[in-house]
Design a protein around this nucleic acid. Structure first.
Lengths: 160, 160
DNA sequence: CTCGATTAAGTCGTGCGCAACTTATTGGCC
DNA sequence: GGCCAATAAGTTGCGCACGACTTAATCGAG
């Protein structure tokens, strides 16, 4: 188990194996992969209530924060390609949560706008982060530390 | 930046926001999702050399560790459903990396066995963890801490 | 021994995620 | 102005992930 002190305390004397082990449980990548799927799974029943998938929920988070954004900007925020977003946005539009319209000043660009229903959904979504935070069961320090480490990792791994 | 000594140096006084924020960048879930995809993307060119996808690589890691395992055991190790593994294993078999055969003592079960080629692939894969470890750029302490935190998170979130 | 419940693996449908590509528009250089 | 590179969005193909379901084998209570 991990100490609450934001990781300040010794954790375990587990014999950390040689660099470059091929053992599954030594791989940070697998811990990451498993954690990501486990968290998504925990979201699923909550998001089902809202009629959203997890990636769709992330898109809505961005839109609730800044409406009338382009697909490109959305992709920059979520680190997703247009080939992922375009069909996803189509589904959200079909579900009545947003509108898509070409920008007058640049016909290449498409502005994504929340519909009334999409904007209203924000209220119903308000309980989701709290519920997930509970399930995660991390102290605020652990939560912040994990975020920091994951961002560092992402930045390093994304570098050139 | 994050300190190496498991948090010995101050990181940042970023105003950690209210519990239950809907801002994308406050969500641990998003940091996790983004990190997982970024790491997988980093693996991709290395695994392309081996003719493997990332989930296929994870399966091979398990098999290199313990051969002649059942689909069920593989699923337990990777936390994946048979509906994910069955087609994936079919593809690995088609690529000549493994064989599948019904167990004599329990005809419901299927034993997954490495082929010669699958076993040999291990040598070529040996450099992958080192290369990825480099790219991740975490200190051993940061690496271990991240793994610990992710396992804690996974365990909490998976609990009933 | 029997038969209903359980278990293992697999199929099917849907929605990502991404590489490779296409289409349409814009910008820049002469 | 004309043309070509760059850019934005979208399409296609493939491989996961997973829920819901199917098939087949085994288990176990009576």
């Amino acid at each position: 188990m991990i100490s609450a002190e934001a990781g300040s305390r010794r954790v375990d004397p587990a014999p950390e194996p040689a660099e470059g082990s091929l053992l599954l449980d030594d791989q940070l990548c697998f811990a990451l992969y498993a954690a990501s799927r486990a968290v998504t799974a925990r979201y699923r029943p909550l998001l089902d209530e809202l009629g959203l998938t997890y990636p769709q929920y992330l898109v809505m988070l961005v839109l609730w924060e800044q409406d009338a954004i382009s697909v490109r900007e959305l992709g920059a925020a979520l680190q997703l390609e247009s080939s992922t977003l375009s069909p996803l946005l189509k589904r959200l539009e079909a579900n009545g949560l947003l509108h898509r319209e070409r920008r007058a000043d640049d016909e290449r660009s498409v502005a994504i706008r929340l519909s009334e229903e999409g904007a209203r959904l924000r209220d119903r979504a308000a309980t989701v982060p709290v519920s997930i935070g509970d399930a995660m069961g991390l102290t605020p320090e652990q939560d912040a530390l994990t975020k920091q480490l994951l961002r560092l990792l992402t930045a390093n791994v994304s570098a050139d």
